[in-house]
Design a protein around this nucleic acid. Structure first.
Lengths: 136, 136
DNA sequence: GTTGACTCTGTACCACGGTACAGAGTCTAG
DNA sequence: CTAGACTCTGTACCGTGGTACAGAGTCAAC
């Protein structure tokens, strides 16, 4: 048993915390391996590690755990074909685009304020404070 | 009392919900007006409305409530000068820039996957599923 | 003076993605 | 055989920005 993949080894392999694995199990994102007879430690296998990698990669791409759930369901469903996954990715891309647009607007607004602010002088004349207070 | 600014009127003026005002009060972002003697309804004044506008505007610019707390503290502190506020804005701008960069990277990665995916055919050959599973 | 709308206080709950612990069990090295 | 490290189960908690009540009080109009 000394070389068996226990949860802490699995966590190490997958670069996540032990509690994170348990959390994914509770969420149903990964299934808990059966315990050996008479209750010992669960043994994790490579497929499960791979699944955790999938989850982390998808998170990096901006998918929420709920969405990853759907991706995983698609993936394990035999009828799924490539286009289903691709349209998920396309939707996510559009979402990311939208977020970028919003942030660019915020950035522009902040920059305008920063440029308008002399950086010295009394607070009462600060255009930033002024702009925040003004209701438009 | 019929024309007094009660909390619901204040909420309307500030374009937020009544519960949101109460929430800001609990958070200490705005101070609760004193109740008239013998316990009646609190009366909100224009300054408070303006403060709520300040909060909402700052939220629009990507400041968290905690950061808005700091901005408000700066604003009501007599020694503060313009530069203090400006450097907060600059930090926020840099943060927003960073978020944009990250999202652009995500967008690029998604797009690459989408372009590589034929959109038809079996799931087993899907480059998106493949990429998500691969650990790099 | 009663009805109906509003307010007040306190507390609980929502989604999100975990993190932390207690108390029991198990495994392994020495 | 025992100590120390790990695991298991269950449950509670974190921060974020609110939302949703219940039960009591208050106010204005009719």
């Amino acid at each position: 048993m000394s070389n068996a993949m226990t949860i802490s080894r699995a966590a190490e392999q997958a670069c996540v915390g032990v509690e994170t694995i348990r959390f994914y199990e509770r969420r149903g994102l990964i299934k808990q391996p059966a315990r050996p007879r008479r209750g010992g430690y669960r043994v994790y296998d490579a497929e499960l590690i791979e699944r955790i990698h999938f989850i982390r990669q998808a998170q990096q791409l901006g998918f929420s755990l709920r969405e990853i759930d759907e991706l995983l369901a698609l993936r394990s469903h035999p009828q799924t074909h490539c286009g289903d996954v691709r349209s998920q990715a396309e939707m996510k891309r559009d979402e990311v685009d939208h977020k970028i647009e919003q942030l660019v607007q915020i950035r522009t607004a902040l920059d305008k304020l920063i440029c308008a602010c002399p950086g010295d002088g009394a607070l009462s004349t600060c255009p930033i404070v002024d702009a925040l207070a003004r209701y438009e």
